[in-house]
Design a protein around this nucleic acid. Structure first.
Lengths: 132, 132
DNA sequence: GTAATTGCAAAAGATTTGCCCCATT
DNA sequence: AATGGGGCAAATCTTTTGCAATTAC
């Protein structure tokens, strides 16, 4: 198989995603953040690396319903995502244990599962609270 | 509020989506199908109506991870979607009962939920089966 | 008659890709 | 030195939008 190199660009992108702030940045946002460290990095490189890291399983892509661009996050314990349709914010949501152990394979012609993505769409407490 | 009209275009699109075949078509596919009935319909109209119908809750948009364009489906009982990353097929998956009654609101700052989207990503039995 | 909706085509975004050069191994 | 990966810009692909004409009500 193909050899991969440890480029500075790739390391910077991974660092940004693993910073610990659960901000679910877009490729564009990661690009802007990376530019602070490497002013010459290009957006194409960010996209190429995000795809590479996703294939390696080191990065997860979040495609919310209705939002325009993908968001990304680093490696984290399994969790769901809540999307507020009013303010477009994204929050992490813990998953109940029985959810992960459920035998989805018995419900459909599924051979193996690489990823479970639960998106909860609605209004967050800030946007959903009645205006006083 | 704004009045809405019952245009032939809108009816055709809704009919295509409610045909009962669970094929999860893309906007492009719906467009091609609609052209068989209305040769002059335009792709822009398909997109405009899909957005309208989605807002009305009559149509659901499915954004699979890694696939390029959105897929759509008509009104159906709640279910999950399985995406095969090898052949790009999408299958419906029944949801366990306790899934829908789970109190997600208690897990995060959620005020109200309009939609639960579960995407299961992996390999289907056809693609995942070992090659003999 | 009025205004929501269409068709068309252009525009807007988001993401990918070709090509040539540079840097990691 | 070999070649994976980067920078840049052009290309591609999906979706949205402006506008004049049409049509449902």
């Amino acid at each position: 198989m193909k050899k991969t190199r440890n480029t500075r660009q790739r390391a910077v992108i991974l660092t940004i995603l693993n910073k610990g702030n659960h901000c679910h940045p877009t490729a564009e946002a990661i690009y802007r953040e990376a530019q602070k460290i490497m002013p010459n990095i290009s957006l194409g490189t960010v996209y190429r690396n995000l795809n590479f890291l996703r294939e390696q399983g080191l990065v997860r892509e979040i495609r919310s319903n209705s939002a325009s661009s993908s968001r990304f996050e680093g490696e984290q314990p399994p969790h769901a995502h809540f999307h507020c349709t009013r303010c477009n914010s994204v929050h992490d949501v813990p998953l109940p244990g029985n959810f992960l152990s459920f035998r989805w394979e018995e419900q459909a012609p599924i051979s193996s599962i690489s990823c479970l993505d639960l998106h909860i769409v609605g209004a967050c407490v800030e946007c959903g609270a009645p205006v006083v």
